[in-house]
């Protein structure tokens, strides 16, 4: 079996921790030298409490990497919404605190590509952060991607400052029109899609399905990043199983699952979305 043995457990130090919106925070930590292989779409498991409660680590995708302010090495960021006990604990940590992480984990986005398709990045809400890291890599390799970003409201928007630093001008949509165009980000996509694109997407499931369908009409490659509850993050607990797409012709007993943590979190859309309809 082929396994990515780059993953390790590290004690790292928090370099900054700031509030981006009412309930979204950005945590930056020193990037351990053993995690230099971390690539866009990969994630880390963070131990949010030194006590036994909450019991499990929490998975967070890497939002970006950048040189450390100290000038030595790099730092990485995760951007998260405070939704429960785990993220409440995480929120209480301060710069200088140590945090126990496991990473880099999972299979990330395919970049660079072997073809010269034009990349389009489509993010919704907290699906935007992992695409920032991807945009960073693309810009570093001399390709400025198109970027579509959707949020519920202007005060939920994240990552726009980072995109502007990168020289990426995003097309933005919000549900209430408080920033950019009013409506869903998928309504802003050109129809039909130009055939020379390649698409990378992360966000709520209905958005990903819409993006995948749109790509299918243009027969363009589409990679989606999924999320799920998970206990181990390394493919051992099998808790984060996701139904693999099976062709219509197969019967129910052919159901098969992929693991978000190990087979993903990034998948080719056709691996995880059936297009029976």
């Amino acid at each position: 079996m082929c396994q990515d043995d780059n993953k390790r457990q590290f004690i790292t130090r928090i370099t900054s921790h700031r509030q981006l919106t009412r309930d979204i925070w950005e945590l930056r930590c020193d990037l351990p030298s053993g995690m230099l292989s971390a690539s866009p779409g990969q994630f880390v498991m963070i131990e949010v409490s030194p006590s036994l409660q909450p019991f499990l680590r929490r998975p967070f995708s890497i939002a970006y990497r950048q040189p450390a302010p100290s000038g030595k090495g790099e730092e990485f960021a995760v951007i998260y919404r405070v939704v429960g006990e785990g993220t409440r604990r995480l929120k209480s940590l301060s710069p200088g605190d140590e945090v126990n992480i496991i990473g880099p984990l999972g299979r990330g986005f395919t970049w660079p590509r072997r073809d010269d398709r034009r990349p389009v990045l489509i993010g919704g809400g907290l699906g935007v952060p992992p695409l920032l890291f991807l945009a960073q890599r693309m810009v570093a390799s001399g390709v400025v991607p198109q970027f579509f970003a959707g949020f519920t409201r202007a005060d939920q928007a994240v990552g726009l400052d980072m995109l502007s630093e990168l020289g990426v001008v995003p097309v933005v949509a919000t549900d209430d029109g408080s920033l950019g165009r009013r409506g869903l980000v998928t309504e802003l996509l050109p129809d039909p899609p130009p055939g020379d694109l390649c698409v990378y997407s992360c966000g709520p499931l209905p958005m990903l399905q819409a993006v995948a369908s749109w790509c299918r009409t243009g027969r363009i490659p589409c990679e989606v990043s999924l999320e799920n509850r998970m206990a181990c993050g390394v493919g051992a607990c099998l808790g984060c199983a996701w139904p693999a797409a099976v062709p219509e012709s197969h019967d129910r007993d052919s159901r098969r699952y992929v693991l978000i943590c190990k087979d993903g979190p990034v998948f080719a859309a056709e691996e995880v979305f059936a297009f029976d309809r």
């Binding site: 019991f55 799920n228 509850r229 998970m230 206990a231 607990c237 984060c240 199983a241 139904p243 699952y257």
Partner: peptide, 23 residues
């Protein structure tokens, strides 16, 4: 064995519940 349909996992006080289905 394919295992159970998701969701398969939940965190509980000082522990967790799983219903993997022996995949």
């Amino acid at each position: 064995w394919p295992g159970n349909r998701p969701p398969r996992l939940a965190e509980t006080p000082a522990g967790m519940l799983n219903a993997i289905g022996l995949q």
